[in-house]
Nucleic acid binder design. Structure first.
Ligand SMILES: [Mn+2]
Ligand SMILES: [Mn+2]
Ligand SMILES: [Mn+2]
Ligand SMILES: [Mn+2]
Lengths: 218, 218
DNA sequence: GTGATGGATTAGACACGTCTAAAGATCATC
DNA sequence: GATGATCTTTAGACGTGTCTAATCCATCAC
């Protein structure tokens, strides 16, 4: 049985290894709003429990057991987010913190029933894939909108940062998961991008925004 | 902000004051599967936070603030139990421990949305009243089946102990919230009682069982 | 190679929640 | 009104998770 803090550290390691190829102590600390020394302590504990390998001063790698546990956490987190949005009518910018708590109620029957109740969804409200009972993820290859070129026709697959501010900005521009858009122009000066939604007038988004939009060819 | 442990202690005090007229340190400890000395520490802390009055060696009384907080906890607990039974298909004997965890996710919007989603239920799966947003409870006067006399026609209103064993026993006999029954005979020797469900053959229940069944005139 | 730099770890502290053992109260009974 | 049973509280300890400050280490610039 892991404590809430252990689980949050494990999940942070998993998330950091997902994009970057390393999970640095200071990045874990930043993500959990804690200090590097606290993280070191925790990594030692998780290593003792066989959830990860910790090579001091070098880095951290998940064991199979650790990865599996992390995937279950991610599964619970994303199922709760889906429930809160689809069944309780929350906005996609309101659910992360609640899911951050609910994910720690570890009960397989509850998780599976919730999954069934939601119709075994493959993606959460932010477009992130939901691991199934076995921890399997439907992989998709998406790319950052910021790397796309003028003329491409794309669909928004996911938002890679669930900051309230970003999500509300997207809301205000009518951009959501599944929205189709065409890239009209990319401005070299500031990296901003003019895009045209399928049904609507063109407008511009900053590089900060396009960087966090994961898209796939429409 | 109260910790999980503080909340559980507060709720135990509230629950004990509900039936008996006092909340003894040892009873709180027993209910929380902890020790009397730990409870004393916690009562001191809750008293400092203004949630209850603690008169050492005498007893404990909730303040308005403490009662209000306890009622919100009870509300969340019972709403989650209702959700688990009605929407996720759990048995009424399976939900208490899960609700014991879920109740600590304190977020008014979540609680109210859940309440709406369930249709603002007045009673939980065990027949216990669910406090509303303002902490108000629809009072009913019920009596223990064990105090009833032969000939009375009654409806089961609530089960006052949510032990798995009792609930499964009731399941196996077809007794549930709302069931109608007639008392046929009460045996002085062991306090057991012969009852006849509205649709079905008569059978006997022990005093241990009838003591925990709250009934009202049918 | 030698420093400088910045991230990582350790040392030492503290708050919290729990425990056991010892001491203090209350109360019923004789 | 003393005694004993029972309950409650205090004293002192420990594990956990966090922090700050000090130290350690890898690496990059020169
Ligand atoms: Mn999230
Ligand atoms: Mn969390
Ligand atoms: Mn319950
Ligand atoms: Mn609880």
């Amino acid at each position: 049985m892991l404590t809430r803090s252990e689980e949050d550290h494990l999940k942070a390691v998993y998330a950091l290894l997902q994009d970057g190829d390393s999970a640095l102590t200071k990045d874990i600390a930043q993500r959990l709003r804690t200090k590097a020394s606290s993280v070191t302590d925790m990594l030692k504990k998780l290593a003792e429990k066989g959830l990860l390998k910790h090579e001091p001063y070098y880095g951290v790698k998940l064991t199979a057991k650790g990865r599996s546990h992390a995937l279950q956490l991610v599964r619970r987190h994303r199922l709760w987010e889906t429930f809160l949005v689809q069944h309780l009518g929350f906005g996609w910018d309101e659910v992360h913190e609640l899911a951050e708590q609910l994910e720690h109620v570890a009960n397989d029957k509850l998780t599976d029933r919730l999954d069934d109740h939601l119709g075994k969804p493959a993606f959460d409200p932010h477009g992130d894939p939901i691991p199934d009972r076995q921890g399997r993820i439907r992989e998709r290859k998406t790319l950052r909108l910021s790397l796309c070129k003028a003329g491409q026709v794309l669909r928004i697959a996911a938002v890679s940062e669930t900051t309230d501010g970003l999500l509300r900005l997207l809301d205000s521009k009518g951009l959501r998961i599944g929205s189709q858009l065409t890239v009209q122009e990319v401005h070299a000066f500031d990296g901003s991008m003019d895009i045209k939604p399928k049904n609507g007038a063109a407008f511009s988004v900053s590089k900060e925004v396009s960087h966090h939009l994961q898209v796939e060819p429409a």
